[in-house]
Amino acid sequence: MNASPDSPELEALRLSLEVAVRSVGLSLPLAVLAAWVLTRTRFPGRLALDAFVHLPLVLPPVAVGYVLLLLLGVRAPLGAWLHERFGIQLAFTTAGAALATAVMTFPLMVRAIRLSLENVDRGLEDAARTLGAGPLDRFLTITFPLMLPGILAGAVTAFAAGLGEFGAVITFASNVPGVTRTLPLALYTAMQSPGGDQLALRLAILSFTLGLIGLLVAELLVRRVRRLLGG
C-alpha cells in the first residue's frame, strides 16, 4: 500500500494542493474587492454583478469550463492574444486548472468575506475618520483587520473546495497526468481503468481526509482570530 515518490496518489495530491493554493492566491484580492463593491457601493448594475459573481454556484461546472475554453482556449481570441503577447497558455496547463478552480470557488469566498464586512461597525470607521485617518488608511488599519476572520474563513473554505474541483478543470484544462490530473481527476481516471479499484479507494480516502482537515483548520483558525480580535 505504500506510495512511492512517483506514485499517482502523491502526484495527484501535490497537483491538487498546487492548484488550490494558486487558485486562492489568484481569487483572494479580487474576492475582497468584489465583497467591498457589493457591500459598500450603490450603482445601477450592482444586482447584476451580484448575480454574475454567484453564477458558478448554480451553473454546471462543465459549462463554466466550456465558457473558459471559448474565451481562453488556444485558438480563442483572448487565449491567442495572451499567448502571442505574453507567452501565457492557460488551456491544458496547471495554471489553467488553477484559474478554473478559482472561478468555481470565487462565490464561496466572496460570500464569507462579504458577511464579515457587513459585520464591521461603520461607527468604528467614522471614529477613525475623526482621528485623522483617510480612506485607504481606514481600510488598512480598521476595516481589513476586522474582516480577517471572514477572509481567512473564505480562503480556507475555497482552498478545501478547490482541492476537489472536477468538472471545470477537466473541461478547460483537460486530464494531463502530472499537469492537470488533480485528486478528483486521478480518482475518476482510476475508476475508469481496469484494475484501478484499489487506487480509486486510496484516492477517495485521501480526498476525504484532506477535505476534513481543511474544514477543521478553517474553523480553528477563525476561532483563534476572533479571540485575538476580542470578539
Partner: peptide
C-alpha cells in the same frame, strides 16, 4: 473640509474603541 482634516475630536455615545 474633510472630516479627517478638521481636527475635531469626537467622543461618541458608545466608546467605539477599535476592538483589535
Amino acid at each position: 473640509v474633510p472630516v479627517e482634516r478638521r481636527r475635531i475630536g469626537y467622543v461618541f455615545q458608545e466608546p467605539r474603541l477599535f476592538p483589535h
